[in-house]
Design a protein around this nucleic acid. Structure first.
Ligand SMILES: NC(=O)c1ccc[n+]([C@@H]2O[C@H](COP(=O)([O-])OP(=O)(O)OC[C@H]3O[C@@H](n4cnc5c(N)ncnc54)[C@H](O)[C@@H]3O)[C@@H](O)[C@H]2O)c1
Ligand SMILES: NC(=O)c1ccc[n+]([C@@H]2O[C@H](COP(=O)([O-])OP(=O)(O)OC[C@H]3O[C@@H](n4cnc5c(N)ncnc54)[C@H](O)[C@@H]3O)[C@@H](O)[C@H]2O)c1
Lengths: 208, 208
DNA sequence: TGCATGCTGTGAAAAACGTAACAGCAATAC
DNA sequence: GTATTGCTGTTACGTTTTTCACAGCATGCA
């Protein structure tokens, strides 16, 4: 089992390797990739060790090979299907962002309660009535969900998603959701993030 | 100096304490607060230890007192001023979200290059031309910035912000920015987060 | 008042995470 | 072919973060 931090960095390495403009360089050294990712070379080598990829001294890592190797670890056999609940400002921003980007993650359904949004195709993705969650999530075997509904209904939405078989949730509502063991939850509250940044900003200002 | 993780949790505790509906309970035990925050009681007690707040056995922690104590650690003397660069879909969602919420963080200026956005008040906040960054950020002593511009210009924006005296950056563009020591940086890439969730979702699905 | 209860504060152990160091070897130069 | 260079894989170490465990005490009740 790979640690959370390592998975995050692997995702970053892959992105950096695939987005690289210079397609001529076939291989890179650990310190080059590390520098792009803003980590130490030792960190990078350690991360590659856990996925079992091995380079060679004097040549480094074969870019294409390494990227594929990361894919085989991070991705399943087929692209993960993603549902997003709450097509408000944030929800639309995220869906259209994910659309624009070639990715292994496919947003295949969105949900809302607002009848001005349901039944239409928004940001390139069909928006269903919220009470179709069970039917569609279970029926299409969607395993990952993004929650961008107001915080007072977030727990209710999470419960429905879990009951429909969702195994991972990315939550943007500013409430700590309760999910059973076996469902992976990641919270992304703006306020917390901003307060953290503000705290350390102040801290470093006081030091100078 | 308090650790990042602890600061995040303190922010969460404060939010939970302030949002509590039942204003009658004057005090709470560690296990009650911990349960709301989804952490262990030991974790909570240790976090409170580092800020020097102390409860009492048999009664627990005085809610109002504790919240104020967290404030005195997290907040400076005055509310931190925040600038946001890039009033696209995501930028507007964040600004209007922060507006709606009583907070110690004030978004006092936003910036964009698009002339359809600049010079107007959007989501309750004035939007300036992007080349006014130096003037306004330095002039109004803004210390924290949120970056929500396309990734190819994110580094350039970050540089200008740093030159203007910004001490903390919350970055939503999917690129690892380079900032000098003394500037605190927090990255919040959706793709990385989603890929992480998808990985662990698959992991837990395979286990069952 | 005095006793029993059970929660707090904290030192000590454990776990997670990152860093440093180096032996071994692939590539290159000559 | 051989020597040299300098990068990799991995182990050992240091640091940070979390959990455990329990002594001590404030509280509520008899
Ligand atoms: N973490 C972040 O970066 C961030 C930024 C902004 C907002 N937020 C949070 O994200 C959430 C949404 O923010 P927003 O600005 O998009 O708000 P919004 O009001 O624009 O969007 C909410 C959407 O959810 C829909 N909705 C309401 N109840 C629903 C239900 N039961 N099922 C399905 N859909 C439902 C509404 O119809 C609306 O379309 C809020 O909780 C907000 O606090 C997070
Ligand atoms: N982390 C997330 O949750 C998340 C979600 C969606 C998008 N994103 C990222 O956030 C960024 C913005 O996404 P979006 O959907 O809002 O895109 P968008 O195109 O709607 O918004 C970008 C805005 O930035 C402005 N801009 C462009 N260049 C600028 C410059 N040099 N200075 C100031 N403003 C400038 C544009 O005029 C536009 O208004 C992108 O980098 C995207 O990848 C992140």
């Amino acid at each position: 089992m790979i640690s959370e931090k390592t998975v995050e960095r692997l995702s970053l390495y892959r992105w950096l390797l695939e987005m690289r403009v210079d397609k001529n360089t076939l291989s890179l050294f650990s310190h080059q990739i590390a520098s792009m990712a803003c980590v130490t070379p030792a960190q990078l080598r350690r991360d590659l060790m856990v996925i079992g990829y091995t380079g060679s001294p004097g040549r480094g890592y074969l870019v294409k090979d390494l990227a594929e190797s990361i894919c085989s670890v991070l991705d399943g056999d087929e692209p993960a299907k993603v549902a997003l609940v709450g097509m408000g400002n944030l929800g639309r921003a995220i869906v259209s962002f994910l659309r624009g980007r070639r990715s292994r993650l496919k947003v295949v359904a969105t949900f809302d309660t607002d009848s001005r949004k349901t039944g239409r195709v928004i940001s390139g993705c069909r928006c269903y009535e919220q009470d179709k969650i069970e039917e569609i999530v279970a029926g299409r075997q969607i395993s990952v969900a993004v929650i961008t509904v107001p915080s007072d209904v977030a727990q209710k939405v999470a419960d429905r998603l879990v009951n429909s078989g969702i195994k991972g949730i990315l939550n943007y509502a500013p409430v700590p959701l309760r999910v059973p063991d076996g469902v992976y939850l990641e919270n992304r509250d703006v306020t917390t993030a901003l307060e953290k940044v503000a705290y350390f900003a102040r801290e470093s200002k006081e030091k100078e």
